[in-house]
């Protein structure tokens, strides 16, 4: 009853919202369904089959691409999360204007068109003489993953009572033990969430990787793009579905283990 009187509640918004959801998810559903299609005509359904999954997983070049993707994502996640954690801790200690400025600069890359970052990184690597390969991809991914990892850590840190760290110092903990015993465990859910965002951003990235990957550093998205140029086959659908599954699995795992401690500490603050 109350909802009907809400000033922003205009007629038709529910329909629009439903359409938007449909628009978001229909392509993905179609993709997943067609990956089980027996026909090799991508868009004509002839029957259920796991044929394309078998073919995709039997494809050695593709397996190498998956391996590269996972290597890059793992390395970039570790590096970006470590950098983001130190940034968050460092910025928290500085005050006022410095903080605002640095946080703005950290967030800006999220607004820069990806193609600009891609070209800029390529130029930098060529200029400095970094050989294009897995290493350059890892470096590039680390760079664009930092802001993704930073924000969850930062918001977790903002909710952390500074008196806890002081209490640890007061109870004879030197700086490093205080960090390991107090700050790190309490920030863990934020660090976890940041790492997850970094991992997924890295796993799915195409534009930047396409520019800075040398020969032999093909990741899954780049490989899929290469396949599409020779025509969309159901194998591409199967691959994309696997990528989707991997992302969803990571999210599910992290939310299961990550939300519980977060809720616990929040409960304590209010009591």
């Amino acid at each position: 009853m109350n909802e009907a009187r809400h000033p922003l509640r205009l007629p038709g918004t529910a329909v629009l919202a439903a359409l938007a959801m449909l628009f978001l998810y229909v392509p993905i559903i179609v993709l997943v369904v067609l990956s089980f299609n027996a026909s090799d005509m991508t868009t004509i359904w002839t029957g259920f089959s796991l044929h394309w999954y078998a073919q995709a997983l039997g494809n050695d070049t593709m397996l190498v691409a998956i391996g590269n993707s996972l290597t890059v994502a793992a390395a970039a996640t570790v590096l970006a999360t470590a950098a983001a954690t130190s940034a968050a801790l460092g910025i928290a200690r500085s005050g006022g204007r410095v903080r605002t400025a640095v946080e703005g600069l950290l967030g800006l890359p999220l607004l820069i068109p990806e193609i600009v970052t891609a070209v800029a990184l390529l130029m930098l690597f060529v200029l400095v003489g970094v050989r294009l390969g897995l290493m350059s991809v890892i470096l590039a991914h680390t760079v664009f993953c930092i802001p993704f990892a930073y924000y969850p850590i930062r918001s977790r840190l903002a909710a952390l009572d500074p008196a806890l760290g002081e209490a640890a110092s007061d109870l004879y903990a030197p700086a490093w033990r205080r960090f390991l015993r107090i700050e790190l465990p309490l920030l863990a859910p934020g660090i976890f969430a940041g790492a997850l965002l970094a991992f997924i951003s890295s796993l799915g990235d195409f534009v930047i990787t396409y520019f800075v990957a040398g020969p032999g550093a093909t990741t899954l998205p780049v490989y899929i793009y290469g396949m599409i140029r020779t025509g969309i086959t159901p194998e591409v659908n199967a691959l994309s579905t696997l990528l989707l599954l991997a992302s969803v699995a990571v999210v599910a795992i992290v939310f299961r283990s990550g939300t519980t401690p977060a809720n616990q500490t929040r409960g304590e603050k209010t009591s």
Partner: peptide
Amino acid sequence: PPNLRPINTVFQSYALFPHMSVAENIGFG
């Protein structure tokens, strides 16, 4: 620094470590 002073504080907000048990809190120092 505070960690080298044989002085302890009871904070107004208590500042108990939420991720540790009562016994771990008391034994921390």
